[in-house]
Simulated assay, not measured.
Amino acid sequence: MEPDLRERAIEATNDDYVYFAEFEGMVIRSTGVTDHAEVLRAALAAATELVLEGAIVPGDLGWADEDFAPWPLTPEESVARIEREVAEHLRAGTNPDMGDICWFDLPARIAEREAAKRAAANDSPTPGSPVKDD
């Protein structure tokens, strides 16, 4: 993967959740390639590499609460799912839109949210337990 493309992808994901179609724009800016099929294949290759090395995690984004939900799949299973969906867009000659295929987040941010949820669950009293008065 082009170093510029890697940097753009990690920087964008550091800033916020990234949807798959954003990788297409990154490919165009990093490589200058504009052919739809080539751009989509290059976006797939970049996302595949980053997912398999554990730099980003695919999942879904809930619109109501904007909470990211990682797919309960291995990186290899995730890549296979992304490949199937990209192949469908290639067959149809369509561009993925915002939210199509998947969203990406950073493993560290996912771990932070999970730790915060666990801490909040441990801090809240369980039903029926006496409330501690300080």
Rank of each mutant, 00 (worst) to 15 (best):
L106P: 03
E11R: 10
P130K: 07
E53W: 11
E24K: 04
T48N: 05
D65C: 11
H89C: 03
G62S: 12
D100G: 08
W71S: 00
L40N: 07
V131Y: 06
V33R: 03
P70H: 00
E2V: 11
R8T: 00
A116N: 11
R8F: 02
D35S: 12
D123V: 10
V131I: 14
R41A: 02
D97M: 12
V86Q: 05
T13K: 06
A108R: 08
R41V: 10
P107T: 09
V39N: 06
G54F: 01
E88M: 13
A12L: 05
V79T: 03
I10G: 08
G59T: 00
R109K: 14
D133W: 15
E76Q: 11
E53Q: 15
L44F: 08
G99Y: 02
P70R: 01
A46V: 06
E38Y: 03
L50S: 00
T34V: 14
I10C: 03
E114L: 05
A120M: 13
V51D: 00
D60M: 08
P75I: 05
A12T: 04
K117T: 09
M1T: 07
P130C: 09
G25V: 06
G59D: 02
V131H: 10
R109D: 05
D16A: 08
G99L: 03
R118H: 10
E114W: 07
E2P: 13
T48K: 04
D133C: 12
L61C: 11
E38R: 09
M98Y: 14
I101S: 00
D123W: 01
S124D: 14
L5A: 08
A116T: 12
G32I: 07
D15S: 10
N14R: 11
R41H: 09
R41Y: 08
R6H: 13
K117C: 09
D16Q: 07
M98E: 15
G32L: 01
L73A: 07
Y19M: 07
P127K: 12
R29E: 15
A9P: 01
F68G: 03
E11D: 11
D105Y: 04
N122A: 13
E24M: 10
E11T: 13
A121H: 10
C102K: 00
L50G: 00
I56Y: 02
